[in-house]
C-alpha cells in the first residue's frame, strides 16, 4: 500500500466488492501487528525450546524428579523409624497429640473414638492384644500398607493419604497407650473388639 496518502483525504478503496460491500485499504496499527508477529515468534521459540532442543524442562520430567525426591525423603524417614525411635516418639506429648488429631480425623471411623474397636470393622487398639504383630514397626507398617487377610486387602493403606510423618505420629499415639515389652500377639478369633459408638 502506498505510504504517502495525504492526511485528511479519503483512504484508498480496494477494488473488490463482495455482496456489494467494499473495504478500505488501511494498515493495521503497528502495535497490533507487533502482538501478532510477537506471538508467532514466541510460539516458534517455545516449540524449539520445548520439543526440539529441550532447553526448557519437560513437565513430566520435572514432576517425576519431584516425586522421586519426595519418595527418597520418605524412604529416608522410614529408615530412621526403628523401634527405639518410635517408642521415644510415643513419649513425646507433642507427637502424641498430633497423632491423636490424625486418629480423630480418620482412624476413629473404624476403630471407634475411644480406640475400643468396632466389631467387624476395626480391631480394638487400647488393649495390649495385637493380631498383626506386636512391635512398633509392625504397627507402623500396618497403618502404612494395610493388611492382607485371607488373600484380601483389609484395613486402610494410609501411606498415600497420610504420608510417613503423620503415620509415625499415629503410631506414636497408639504406642502411648502401651508399655514397652508388654504387647502380646493373639490369634484373630480372640480379638475383643466391641461395637461401641
Amino acid at each position: 500500500m502506498t505510504k504517502d496518502q495525504t492526511r485528511g483525504s479519503k483512504p484508498v478503496i480496494m477494488p473488490h466488492s463482495y455482496d456489494g460491500i467494499q473495504e478500505y485499504d488501511q494498515s493495521l496499527p503497528n502495535w497490533w501487528l507487533f502482538t501478532l508477529f510477537g506471538s508467532i515468534v514466541f510460539a516458534f521459540l517455545y516449540w524449539l525450546a520445548n520439543f526440539v532442543t529441550g532447553t526448557l524442562p519437560d513437565d513430566r520430567v520435572a514432576i517425576n524428579t519431584e516425586i522421586d525426591a519426595l519418595e527418597a525423603r520418605q524412604l529416608a524417614a522410614i529408615k530412621d523409624l526403628d523401634e527405639p525411635t518410635l517408642w521415644k516418639m510415643s513419649r513425646n506429648s507433642k507427637t502424641v497429640a498430633e497423632g491423636q488429631a490424625v486418629y480423630n480425623s480418620l482412624c476413629f471411623t473404624c476403630h471407634g473414638p475411644t480406640l475400643a474397636g468396632i466389631k467387624g470393622l476395626g480391631f480394638r487398639l487400647n488393649d495390649d492384644l495385637w493380631v498383626h504383630g506386636n512391635t512398633p514397626t509392625a504397627i507402623f507398617n500396618n497403618v502404612s500398607e494395610g493388611i492382607t487377610f485371607e488373600g484380601k486387602p483389609t484395613g486402610m493403606a494410609a501411606q498415600k493419604v497420610l504420608g510417613t510423618g503423620r503415620i509415625a505420629a499415629v503410631t506414636a499415639f497408639l504406642l502411648s497407650k502401651q508399655k514397652e515389652g508388654a504387647m502380646k500377639v493373639i490369634p484373630r478369633k480372640d480379638e475383643p473388639s466391641q461395637l461401641t459408638p
Binding site: 492526511r7 485528511g8 479519503k10 488501511q26 494498515s27 493495521l28 496499527p29 503497528n30 501487528l33
Partner: peptide, 19 residues
C-alpha cells in the same frame, strides 16, 4: 502537523500503522 479527523480512518493510527 495535526491530522484532520475523517470518518474513514482512525485519527490515532497513521496510514503506515504508526501511532
Amino acid at each position: 502537523m495535526k491530522p484532520t479527523p475523517i470518518r474513514e480512518s482512525v485519527t490515532t493510527i497513521g496510514h503506515d500503522g504508526t501511532r
